[in-house]
Amino acid sequence: MPEIHQFFQQLINGIALGGMYALIALGYTMVYGIVELINFAHGDVYTLGSYFSLSILALIPLSRYTGGWQLWLIASCVIVLAALLCGIVGVLIERLAYRRLRNAPRLAPLITAIGVSLILENLMQIWKGTSEVPFPQFLPGGLGVPDNVFVVAGVGIHERALIVVVVSILAMLALNLLVFRTKLGTAMRATAQDRDAAQLMGININGTIAWTFFIGAALAGVAGFISGIYYGTTFFLNGYQAGLKAFTAAVLGGIGNITGAMLGGFLIGIVEAMTSQYISDQWTSVVVFSILILILVFRPSGLLGEQVPEKV
């Protein structure tokens, strides 16, 4: 394979991986933007999304003959349900673990978030065990049917990779609409800017924050579903690494910035693929976390974020 094809092939790999990071990063960035909390448990909500999807799928009699529009209908139902369940989990986490600490020193909720993350991981471990769990790959062709590969100028693109990218872009568009075109979005932006002022303007702060957690967690749930489709397996600790990398993506793009999170997600995915190709696979996480440190040290506002002075 010529060198340039190789490069583009890795670009595709990176974009597909990045699509999932992007979806997770959206949740990080929204929550941080509004309550300035690094929701450490968010990566585990992503894994939870694939676990919920698995359980829902177990209720549906899928066979390799289920085909066409039925598959897409099933997929949509599973996505919506998994997202809904994850959203509820997100709201519950906020209500039970974070709300009491909203006015406590920063340290307190961050430590709580680590605790919530550990609890979620262990609950998933109890739920489905400590090994990889197979996930039925039924999209797009049907259960057990290998997906097609489009070859564009010598570069192969799997349909499943396309699903990842399309779903994540659709999610970002929807989120943008919600944040910039709806009343809830206005309330969210107002709360992010100045919580007290927003309250004075009659905005329900608790409700708005709960909605933010709901939407962030629901997006992680969507990511959990498509990761199941893409990889065909899931694992209770996946959310830890994926969460850290998605957080890196959010920081890279400029935390609090929705487009930035998306951009950051794709960039981190691409960086990983390129490191694997041109440096060595064993250095991928070192490279990604070095980027995290460098960005925080030299440009804490990220690529698209605004320079915000520390609030005092």
Partner: peptide, 20 residues
């Protein structure tokens, strides 16, 4: 002869390199 990173889920990039 490549070594992988522990705890990862995605081997597509490495295998693409292998396939080339």
């Amino acid at each position: 002869h490549d070594h992988i990173t522990k705890g990862q889920q995605d081997f597509h990039a490495l295998l693409t390199r292998a396939a080339s």
